[in-house]
Design a protein around this nucleic acid. Structure first.
Lengths: 193, 193, 193, 193
DNA sequence: AATGAATGAGATTTCATTCAT
DNA sequence: GATGAATGAAATCTCATTCAT
């Protein structure tokens, strides 16, 4: 990732893949947008697939970091859930393209799809741990923590996607209070603040 | 849709599109699976795109019917929400392929994507009306009905998709109680039964 | 040619072939324009090629008739040339489509092209006979009657085509005096009247 | 046009297009004749149409140059007309294929046809200017210079085409004296030499 | 490290023709 | 006599990948 060219290619790839989807994106367009020769991409990445996987790996990692890095030990489970939702919406606003890529290229049977699901499962697992903490602390009384975690992720991301496509310039963070209220209700948080 | 061949093509198309996605699906494979000549598909459908749009239209309509047809006037808002979740999970179990297609091919900027979003918006609007009814009847106290509707759809469908890919033979209806509990909590239903 | 359907097909074919050319014309469009089923065309004509050849045969025959039928025994060679030019321009105005077809589909190496050239050669031969008559009668002093005949046909038809495409509603007969003057000059007619 | 492959493609295209016509010519045949891969043609030319238009442009330009470059200031109008006819016949002999292409693909309503007519009109306009010069110099007494120019072009090219197809190895320049005599007669040149 | 011309497999689409009714 | 659903060969065009420079 150190090379200047690599970074140029990376940025261009995010752009093109999110706009076109994996299949419709062409190496030609990526090369043109990155202002490098097509051969250069193949010098740095073995194939279109590898470039794409690399890109989604980075994106998922970034999501993980962005969302979970704001959680501190002092926060209680409720605060953490609030923060997860806020941070995820902020991430989706900042990295609209990743958001689209991740949700669109996750549901299929090719190697790449499975790889992406693995990363997603990992992320949702972190949410689940927060929920389980809340159940232990008896602030949440939801029964099935796994389903609760997927519900949280699903509602946040689909709502975000819908708004991103309905209005390209929307600031999703403004939706945070409404989504937090719904999510915490869904977890049967003991005191709604 | 009356013709025998048309039905064969339709079924094969659902299969192939859901397995491969729109771009990777080929007319050759659809023709082979339907056991008709490639030209026959083009005799009945103007293009790959048209075939696909027709197919999604039918699917969305079916979803709409399946889910909303079980709602009766006697039901209160809570019962309706419960039923929507149950019916949607049943639909996703029965028509796994449509579920995948609808969620995967909705997020993009091509004409087809916009068309699909329009259909989805229509469906979510129906959910929203039930939520608004509940607010009026003062059984729900959620603030933003639109976001609540999208959350409900998002959590149900992403959770369903995850389980469909994690375990091909899962009966999603078994997840209904857990999802209903979470959803009604999110709507701040007055009495949880 | 007696059948009603045959006539419908014939008319539609002239339309479509002249608008699209032989290759781009489709049996579907001809059938649609004739308001008969595609199979019906094949009931009356063995193939697209046969339909086309039939059509050009008719057209060339019509050209032959239209142009030569006005020539009478009393006319001298000069009057005949004048009449040929006038009649040919009138024909091109009335049957614009044939004019285009004949000139476009004559120059090639397929069986059909050779067939058309044969018909054209036949037509030009008739013009040549008039010129030879004039030479015998010593009103024309041109050396090479064959070249003179092709020149006459070439100048008239290309000029006509150009004007037909430059202005769809042009009445070519208005060009007759100018073209007659040039043609008779080219034949070195003894007295220009 | 510099690249070796481009030249190979160009030559092959002229061959195939003139033998088959635009519609019947296939990229496969052109590629085979040029001994390059089909993709290579598309690397250099955006489409079959673009390749064809490029080719006709070059051809028309060449015709223009070949014919008009021999005209010098010292020549009087009669000499110029003689030279135009001779040069055009020489060009048609040397570039038989262009001759066929230009005349066959000019009469139609598609963008490409209109483009070709535009080029032809430009060429005929040059002939017309020579005729007008002759009228001014009072060596020609023809009334309508435009029609005279089209007649000259039409008679020369159709006569040439006929002879090219009647006898593949004909040297059209041998026809020059006969055609010049006719043409100058048509223009009512004052002294026939 | 970087380039970009060249490739060829494979995709969508068209359409003359056939044939059972 | 007439129909139109069905066919499949063949056409244009795309694009990931390679490789000589």
């Amino acid at each position: 990732m150190a090379s200047v060219k690599t970074r140029l290619i990376f940025r261009a790839a995010v752009d093109v893949f999110s706009e076109r989807g994996f299949e419709k994106a062409t190496m030609d367009e990526i090369a043109a947008k990155a202002r490098v020769a097509k051969g250069t991409i193949y010098y740095h990445f073995k194939s279109k697939e590898e470039l794409f996987v690399f890109l989604v790996e980075q994106g998922t990692e970034l999501l993980h970091e962005n969302v979970l890095s704001h959680l501190t030990e002092e926060m209680d489970a409720q605060e953490k859930i609030r923060e997860i939702i806020r941070a995820q919406l902020a991430f989706f606003t900042a990295y609209r393209d990743f958001c689209i890529i991740i949700l669109r290229e996750t549901w299929g049977d090719e190697a790449r799809h499975r790889e992406f699901r693995r990363m997603l499962v990992h992320y949702v697992h972190s949410i689940r741990q927060v929920i389980e903490q809340g159940i232990e602390e008896q602030v949440f009384s939801v029964e099935n923590a796994e389903i609760a975690a997927w519900s949280l992720f699903g509602s946040t991301s689909i709502t975000a996607l819908h708004h991103l496509f309905a209005d390209k310039t929307v600031d999703l963070v403004a939706l945070a209070p409404a989504m937090q209220e719904i999510a915490l209700g869904g977890l049967h948080a003991k005191e709604i603040t």
